[in-house]
């Protein structure tokens, strides 16, 4: 989306949204980033190609980049990236969680339901229907 279509501005937009959700001090960028960033390896049909170990080896660069940030959560905007990064963490035992951008947005808005937290770790996912969501007044 950044390199092929909308350029740096859309990478900045996503960072703006993410920082607004988690706070500037909690956002750690990867290096390199934006147009210079590395592909995670979930795209181009790789996930369905049957070349599993090659796909994981491809993703090692992304995994190392993530480990370098020390971040606990990796935010991905697309479903293929989500599946790949989730698998990389598992395969290389990275210990990081991978969530969609919409999960973080809804969490920060206080509207994320209990069933919508499967990719969050226990401290954020174990809550009942009433503590979890703070929906608007009725």
């Amino acid at each position: 989306m950044v390199r092929k279509t909308f350029g740096e501005s859309v990478a900045d937009d996503m960072r703006y949204v993410l920082k607004a959700c988690v706070g500037e001090e909690n956002f750690v960028d990867t290096w390199p980033n934006k147009s210079n960033n590395f592909c995670c390896g979930g795209g181009g049909g790789f996930l369905q190609s049957g070349f599993k170990s090659a796909r994981q080896e491809y993703g090692k660069l992304k995994h190392d980049q993530i480990m370098e940030t020390g971040a606990k959560y990796v935010i991905t905007p697309c479903h293929n990236c989500h599946s790949q990064v989730h698998d990389l963490s598992h395969h290389f035992e990275g210990g990081y969680e991978c969530v969609h951008l919409w999960t973080v947005m809804a969490l920060s808005m206080g509207i994320l339901g209990p069933d919508e937290r499967v990719y969050l770790d226990a401290s954020l996912s174990e809550c009942g229907i009433n503590e979890c969501t703070l929906p608007p007044d009725e």
């Binding site: 390199r3 092929k4 147009s35 210079n36 960033n37 590395f38 592909c39 390896g41 979930g42 795209g43 181009g44 049909g45 790789f46 190609s49 070349f51 090659a54 796909r55 491809y58």
Partner: peptide, 12 residues
């Protein structure tokens, strides 16, 4: 089938 056509190479 292992190149994702991510265009990082074109950019660089």
């Amino acid at each position: 089938w292992m190149c994702t056509m991510c265009t990082r190479c074109v950019h660089a």
